[in-house]
Design a binder for these strands. Structure first.
Lengths: 227, 227
DNA sequence: TCAAAAGTGTTTCCCTTACACCCATGC
DNA sequence: GCATGGGTGTAAGGGAAACACTTTTGA
């Protein structure tokens, strides 16, 4: 039997934010996870996140987490979803708002967190995570795939200058299927959101690939009306 | 200067849910709004919603609101987004989780709320709303448009049996542009998610239209792998 | 027989897909 | 000169878009 609630009874919830940080390295999509140091779940791997205070904004708190994790909060972030049926926190009910972020592991990770055990893991090697974080991640991956085909968002995971092969590998890894090299390149050149920037100076065998840069202006034009 | 927070300081937030209820009538997309009876914003129009208690689930609370509004909670609901920078509630910070629902105004509205002033308004006539509800609605409309082209979700706004003209008008209204009749029908018949069900018994001039019914089975097949 | 709405096919174009060989470079 | 990876064009098929007339019915 539920008694009549007083207004103040409504202000007893916890709100947390959780972040799926995506990176790309070694030809694999990577996610940042860290070990939880407090109970419950002490010792378990989890996505970074925290409970927020009443005076913290959702995005601000999320950026705070990102900054703690990689020493920098200037990355692409998007809200994923709110999760209401979260784990039981010892102190009460928690609503979790999940975000995901895309970053370049060389450029954007300026100072990876040192005070807590943490690592980047290829998505295919993600261990069981605390809370409902495996579900969050699953949704985040779905979302990333959808975004990737609808908007050329993948650039945000690469260096400022990248080769088309790198970009294609990124797409193949995330989408989980092979793409035709010629068709892939044709599509990109038709979109016209890439500008050539000379050649890469590799010391590896084979022809030196051209470097491209993502053209923000064209990209924004497309964003106005969808792709 | 922020003092060190105690754990209990984190459990002082309010969480609310808000619902954008979509209907379709008179050839127009309609949204359910109601007048707020309590301060702040007493007398202003707003989307239905409420603060939830620690023991309420997000979906359950949302269904409660839907039931209060239309006397029935068996409708299509989907989460829209969490909004963190909501109005200042006198008692503290509130995080709002918005949902949207699609319903048929004849079949699903079994008992429209009587204890509170409320109405269905065509989206183009929506008045200024309390809180940030105009923003919520704007996002909900974007989302509806996107869903409409990616999934044949529009059926949920119509009667069980409907004519193709009705369906086309619905699409045109929501997408805000005209569609070619022949191409529209061709696409639908190719999808094969409609089954014919005889003819409508109108008493209006003109040829009697065929009635169609939405084929759940085929629809679910498609949902498995996207459209 | 007229007004009103329903219904129906074909062509064009473009995007997508499938597919195989030559080019530059380091060793 | 050979191994390695980079780069390129064309043909066929399928979905999207443009486009106009006939059919049914009530008044």
């Amino acid at each position: 039997m539920m008694r009549d609630a007083l207004l103040q009874d409504y202000f007893k919830m916890g709100v947390s934010v959780t972040v799926v940080l995506y990176g790309f390295e070694g030809g694999k999509l990577q996610v940042y996870i860290q070990k939880i140091s407090t109970n419950p779940y002490a010792g378990a791997w989890a996505l970074p996140g925290k409970l927020i205070l009443a005076e913290e904004g959702l995005i601000e708190a999320t950026k705070g987490i990102v900054k703690e994790s990689i020493g920098n909060d200037d990355i692409y972030l998007e809200q994923l979803n709110a999760f209401g049926e979260i784990y039981r926190h010892p102190l009460g009910r928690v609503i979790d708002v999940a975000f995901y972020g895309l970053l370049n592991m060389k450029k954007d990770v300026v100072n990876q967190r040192a005070d807590k055990e943490n690592t980047w893991v290829a998505v295919e090697d993600i261990p069981p995570l605390a809370y409902d974080h495996n579900d969050v991640l699953k949704l985040a991956l779905q979302r990333l795939k959808r975004r990737l085909v609808n908007r050329p968002i993948g650039f945000k995971l690469l260096n400022k200058e990248f080769t088309l092969t790198e970009l294609q590998q990124l797409y193949e890894q995330i989408l989980g299927r092979e793409l035709d090299k010629r068709n892939f390149r044709k599509k990109l050149t038709k979109l016209g959101i890439l500008t050539a920037e000379g050649h890469e100076d590799t010391s590896s065998p084979g022809r030196k690939p051209r470097l491209f840069r993502f053209n923000e202006t064209k990209y924004n034009d497309y964003m106005e009306q969808g792709f």
